[in-house]
Design a protein around this nucleic acid. Structure first.
Lengths: 101, 101
DNA sequence: TTTGTTTATCGCCAATAGACGATTGATTTA
DNA sequence: TAAATCAATCGTCTATTGGCGATAAACAAA
C-alpha cells in the first residue's frame, strides 16, 4: 500500500474481529481448525498426512493460526501438540456473535 | 501461488466460510458493515465522508463485500444505495455459528 | 557422539490485496 | 445540449499471502 499519512484508527473490537477473520480466510485453516476440534488436539505431522500440502506450508498455516491466538502449541518431544486456545476461541466466537447480532 | 498439480478439494461449507471470512478480513470492511447495519442502508458517498480513504478505495471494498454477497446495491439515481443482503448475511451467520459450535 | 525424527525458518517466486489518482460512464439538472 | 454529480473502473505501485524445496534447530535414541 502506498500510504497513509494519517493512519486510520478503528475500534479495538473491529480490529480484533478483522484479525480473527483473516486467520479464517483460507479453507485450509478452516479445515485444520475443524480437524483440531474433532481430535481435540493433533501434531503437525498428522496434518501433513491429511492435507496434500508440503510440511512447510502446513507449518505456515499453523503459525498464522497461532499468531491470531486461535491455537497453541505444546512441546511433546519430539513433536508439538497443537490445541485450540479456548480462551481466545471464545473471544472470537463472542465477537462474531455480536457482529452478526 | 505456484501450483497445485492436484488441487485440494474442500467441503462446500469450508469454502463458503473461508470466503465470508475473507470478506471480513479487513477492519474497513467490518466498519462499513457496522455502519450499514446502523443506517440500514447508505450511499458510497456517505462512506467517503466517514472514512479517510479515497473514493476508489471505498469502492473497491464495497465491490469485495458485494462479491462475497454480504451487501447489495440498488440504483437510486444518481446514487447507489447499499444494503446488507439479508439472505447471505444469515447464511454467513449460520456458518460462523456452526463453526464455533 | 552420532543419527534419526520432527517442526520451524529461510529464500524464492507468482499471485493477490490494498492503496492511490485519473479517467470513464451513467444520469440529473441547468 | 452542456455541465455537474456520483460511482465504477483502469493503471500503477508496494506489501502481503501462499506455495515450494532446502536448511536449520531441537531433542530422543542408539
Amino acid at each position: 500500500m502506498k500510504r497513509n499519512l494519517e493512519p486510520i484508527t478503528y475500534k479495538a473490537d473491529t480490529k480484533a474481529l478483522a484479525k480473527f477473520a483473516k486467520a479464517l480466510a483460507h479453507p485450509t485453516r478452516i479445515a485444520i481448525l475443524n480437524y483440531l476440534d474433532k481430535q481435540s488436539c493433533c501434531f503437525t505431522g498428522d496434518l501433513v498426512d491429511v492435507f496434500p500440502l508440503a510440511q512447510s506450508t502446513i507449518s505456515q498455516h499453523l503459525k498464522e493460526l497461532k499468531n491470531a491466538g486461535l491455537i497453541q502449541g505444546e512441546l511433546k518431544s519430539p513433536k508439538i501438540k497443537y490445541c485450540i486456545n479456548q480462551e481466545n476461541w471464545n473471544t472470537a466466537k463472542t465477537l462474531f456473535q455480536q457482529f452478526f447480532e
